[in-house]
Computed example of a mutant assay.
Amino acid sequence: MEALVLAWPGGEHAFRLPLAQLELLQGATGCGPEFLLNKLNLGQWAATEPFEIIRAGLMGGGMDAAGAKDVVSRAFDRHP
């Protein structure tokens, strides 16, 4: 599976959710991927879930954990 390239505040970044990142995301949110997607679609998401989804996707696209957290934190601080 190829990574998507997302235009993001501060540049373009690869985004991908392979199995390792889905497992990380499930641990961080307590939700499986399909359940989490349904929560987002229904507007029933918790405040940290979008942050965790994007962070995991950036890591799956090749960014290190600290860099992904920094990029997402800066974007969320600027664009809540």
Rank of each mutant, 00 (worst) to 15 (best):
W45T: 00
E34I: 07
K39H: 01
W45G: 00
G62L: 08
F76S: 04
Q26E: 14
R78F: 15
G67L: 10
L22F: 14
F76N: 05
F35A: 03
G43A: 04
V71W: 15
L6V: 04
V5W: 06
G61S: 10
D70C: 02
L4F: 09
A75P: 14
D64L: 01
G10W: 10
K39P: 00
C31E: 04
E12S: 10
L42Y: 04
A14L: 07
L37W: 10
D64Y: 01
C31W: 05
L4I: 15
L6Y: 02
N41M: 05
V71S: 14
M59I: 11
L24I: 04
P33Q: 05
E2K: 15
Q26S: 09
L58G: 11
E23W: 14
M1A: 12
F76P: 02
E2H: 14
M63L: 13
A65S: 07
F15G: 14
P33N: 05
A75G: 15
N41C: 02
E23I: 12
M59H: 03
G62D: 08
R74C: 10
E23C: 08
K69T: 09
E2S: 13
P9Y: 13
M1K: 15
N38E: 15
A3K: 14
E52C: 03
V71C: 15
V71N: 10
G32W: 07
A14Y: 06
A14Q: 02
H79Y: 15
R78H: 12
A47P: 05
G60D: 12
G11Y: 07
R55M: 13
F15S: 13
E2R: 15
A68F: 07
L36Y: 01
A47N: 01
L22S: 11
P18Q: 09
T48F: 14
A47S: 12
L37D: 03
K69A: 11
P18L: 07
I53Q: 01
F15E: 08
F15P: 08
G11C: 11
G67K: 03
A14I: 02
A66G: 15
L25V: 09
C31D: 07
G61M: 04
A47C: 06
I53S: 00
T48I: 11
P33S: 13
C31Q: 02
L37R: 06
A14H: 04
N38P: 08
G10V: 03
E23N: 10
E52R: 01
G61D: 10
F51R: 02
A3E: 12
A47V: 09
D64R: 00
L4S: 07
C31T: 00
M1T: 09
L40G: 07
G27N: 05
K69P: 04
M1N: 11
A65F: 11
N41V: 00
R74G: 09
A68E: 13
N41Q: 06
A20F: 15
L42M: 04
N41S: 01
